[in-house]
Design a protein around this nucleic acid. Sequence first.
DNA 1: TATGAATGAGAGTTCATTCAT
DNA 2: TATGAATGAACTCTCATTCAT
Lengths: 201, 201, 201, 201
Amino acid sequence: MEKKIKRNLMIEAAFSLFLKNGYLNTKVIDIAEEAGVGKGTVYEYFPSKELLFAEVFRLKILSDYGEIEKLIRSKMSAEKKLLKYVAFEAKNMKKFGDSLHMLPDMVMSSDAFKNEALQKTIYDLWVLRFNAMHSIIKEGIANGEFLPADSELVAMSVMGSLNFFLLFKYDMMPKACPKVVDAAEWEFESFSQTIFNGIKA
Amino acid sequence: MEKKIKRNLMIEAAFSLFLKNGYLNTKVIDIAEEAGVGKGTVYEYFPSKELLFAEVFRLKILSDYGEIEKLIRSKMSAEKKLLKYVAFEAKNMKKFGDSLHMLPDMVMSSDAFKNEALQKTIYDLWVLRFNAMHSIIKEGIANGEFLPADSELVAMSVMGSLNFFLLFKYDMMPKACPKVVDAAEWEFESFSQTIFNGIKA
Amino acid sequence: MEKKIKRNLMIEAAFSLFLKNGYLNTKVIDIAEEAGVGKGTVYEYFPSKELLFAEVFRLKILSDYGEIEKLIRSKMSAEKKLLKYVAFEAKNMKKFGDSLHMLPDMVMSSDAFKNEALQKTIYDLWVLRFNAMHSIIKEGIANGEFLPADSELVAMSVMGSLNFFLLFKYDMMPKACPKVVDAAEWEFESFSQTIFNGIKA
Amino acid sequence: MEKKIKRNLMIEAAFSLFLKNGYLNTKVIDIAEEAGVGKGTVYEYFPSKELLFAEVFRLKILSDYGEIEKLIRSKMSAEKKLLKYVAFEAKNMKKFGDSLHMLPDMVMSSDAFKNEALQKTIYDLWVLRFNAMHSIIKEGIANGEFLPADSELVAMSVMGSLNFFLLFKYDMMPKACPKVVDAAEWEFESFSQTIFNGIKA
DNA sequence: TATGAATGAGAGTTCATTCAT
DNA sequence: TATGAATGAACTCTCATTCAT
């Protein structure tokens, strides 16, 4: 039990530091100190910094997506599911708060990662999310809620739209062009309308 | 003239290596050797590896966006402009071929970059693209082609959709789930339909 | 304890090499090898080569000057104090033996040093020595042992005389004009006579 | 003739920069630019940076000491000669103005210099100065102006006193302890009194 | 089990000097 | 003769990982 606690301490420390400073700018010694353990101890629990990242990624990011499974299997309408999914992703983003340095490492496999398994893990998140979105879309098309179309294509389009909306809102825009974000108090519902109705008059 | 040629040689060498192996995995000596010059020569032309990247970014990525200005000012319908813009971005993606290791560095400012000017430059590309999309959308809404809505929100949504579509198609999906991509011969027109008409029946 | 020993090993190695070859001609790897440790180890104990020098300077040069305080506060006559001080400086010089390459770095802040704190430390030694000399002279003038005069001026004059005498005897002359030194077996007492009595008949 | 001018331009540029920034912090390209010539041109006139320094040293520092010869051979009293010599050295110091970074390189052979001939040249200046002082002292003792003593020892003592007085006043003290210098408007005559009369009451 | 001292491969950068033009 | 583009040896410092205690 003690062991589990110490392991968790390190996961949390790593998560917090990766988030705040990014993977490259977080040193193993920083993690050890933040967790209140010795540097060597990190290597008792994780084979390398990279695999520690993999574990952080799995536990702090991937794990949340368990909820999605339930959402997919629930009895709501596809539209309702889509709205819930959007809310879920928005919630995920928000929990990172202002420390989004990790995002690039999280959403795309940085070339700082040499470990192929880790690269795969990161890409797997995309598959997982894509599959979730895809099944909602497929269901909506099948039951007539959504316009008939290539479901994979639509899923990709919607997911892309969603992801960039979030990324833009929380990461890029604040850095690139702070004014835009402050000015617009975009609502997710409003965002959803565009998805649902398209842009054409 | 000679000097311009040698400079170009280095830019091309760097671009090619950054693209293939990523920024971190490309050493200055690699670039020098690829360009057929001495290591010191690289520093005669560029003050640092980071600023060489900045120049590669500016010349190989940003420069193409000059075309966009013309597109925006042309007399086409907003819908036509949007389709052209989508085609333009798709063409850009394609030119990277199969070597997309640089993409993460390109689309998001890697935490390997300490130079703030460089970080800004990368974010600026987002602003540039966003502004292009935004003016198309605004124009379409103004002339009744597009549904009335918050133009910034719609622009973001469409751009996100487009970007992820491209990124997915060319970078992530091939790695994460090769089958999906090979199977579906997604057409950009088809993609555009979803954007224009939404998904709701 | 072990740690103190290893630190000392490095200080001694650095001191010996700086002394023999000078600061610039001593590489960090040389110090590490001389101390029998790895290159990285040097950086575990000292933040930079320059700050290692600062530490060597502090421990091997500055520390000795603690004795001076005691001398100043003792109950001897000013003349006796002055003689003791001269002997003290001579002893310091002698301990460098024949390896005096470090002297220029020690007596004047080399332009190889960028660290301002280090430059200050080196200059501070001059202040320390000046102050010691100055208080001896002031005391001597006050109690009538020495001729009334501007005490700072006299202190500077005496100290300069002393320093160059030592420097000449041990560093410059042997290189510039070996014969002079070998021929003359200058005595410090004899030197002191000139200081005390002046040169005028 | 043209050639002589260009050579001089470089000497002056080098002198000025060595003086302001020190030998190590002056790059060959800086000298070339300051002199308004190409970098390669420097090497047409001087075999190396080090030997350029040697030339600067010879022309800008050593050359002045030609005057001394005349002083020595003149018919003044030894005391008068000594006073003149002190004034001469003071004048030399003053001409460096506030840019005294070069002093350490000038007065002691920096370990940045590998060239033995250069090291010898620098030490030779000491010999030259020592010999000048020595012959004045010897003369003074011989004709009864000065107290009988070991002339070499006295020469060394006086020269040291003088040198440090100047060095202290112009280089060290301003950096180490600016107040002392500003406060005391030391006069050279006053300094000479200490030399002549000693300090003993 | 926990530690942190020790390690050294590896990378970016500098700059005196060379040499083709 | 004058140039400045090209060079690469050399050096400091970083930090993930190891391993003796």
